[in-house]
Amino acid sequence: MPRRDAVVWAAVAIVMAGPALAQQAETVRIDGSSTVYPVTEAFAEEFQSDFRGQYQVTVGVSGTGGGFQRFCRGETHISNASRPISQSEREACEQAGIEFIELPIAMDALAVVINPQNDWVDHLTVEELRRMWEPESQEQVTNWSQIREGFPDRPLALFAPGVDSGTFDYFTEAVVGEAHSSRGDFTASEDDNILVQGVASDPNALAYFGLAYYTENQDRLKAVPIVNEQGEAVEPSIENAMNGSYNPLSRPLFIYVSTQAIDQSEAVRQFVNYYLDPELAPELVAEVGYVPLPETAYQMAMENLENRVTGSAFEGGGSQVGMTIEDVLATARQRAGTN
């Protein structure tokens, strides 16, 4: 029975050949934050069409924390992150002997949104947002009238991203003052479209999430201007995030690159250079709905890359809130210099 024999041999060959073969060369392996994913996807797509057949890029979405876990085990070359690397993650990397360069690659603005039927809110202050979201407000602040004198007597319905997301981390740090410190009685979802749905169908609702989810749903949502440090109420937009007036709810997004990977792999080196190309990067970043870095930042980032400035600007518990991109890059440089 030659046909049956062929099947048996094929099965044997599969079992034998499987684990013995080596990995494909010239692949850039990336994993991490789902917020940064669309940016990296755009660069990966362009990069591969420019270097067709030469280099391959794979991008996963394990979340910022999951991405760092894999990065510090040496499974990936680059980790996408919507918040700086944490103390414990840094230690894990150190133990595994993995050194990294921290590169800000874009800004994201967090939009605070309400239902279009909501006619009583025309702006909110950070203080008012804190009253809504701080842990002490749990089951205490449940009505719009408690937020500001003159707001109507209506229940307050809160929606927010899940507690594992970098968005939640950043918002709580910027508004409440401490990362992860939030009331627990809100509707949480890992899928921001669910939050959009929730606010669009409830006149008393309020939510926060990345700017792109607001711009795509402007007909169903209303963005709340937030009073910044200078005392002006500013709408969330790419322009306002770029000129720094939309604070404190603009945050930097990062990629972390393993120095070993840069030194060993031509593909990784080329890809990171591509990511920081001042001719190309601002256009691609804006196309996927994020805020490009100021021009000087690309140059600084490139210098940090060339000089192998390793470590994070946030070592020692520095806060991400209120830092400009230039601050981040300069601090990393200082730290590396003093070490």
Partner: peptide, 12 residues
């Protein structure tokens, strides 16, 4: 197991 999300090439 860590399957990837973006992949723009085919296996050999």
């Amino acid at each position: 197991i860590g399957a990837l999300t973006f992949i723009a090439f085919l296996p050999p």
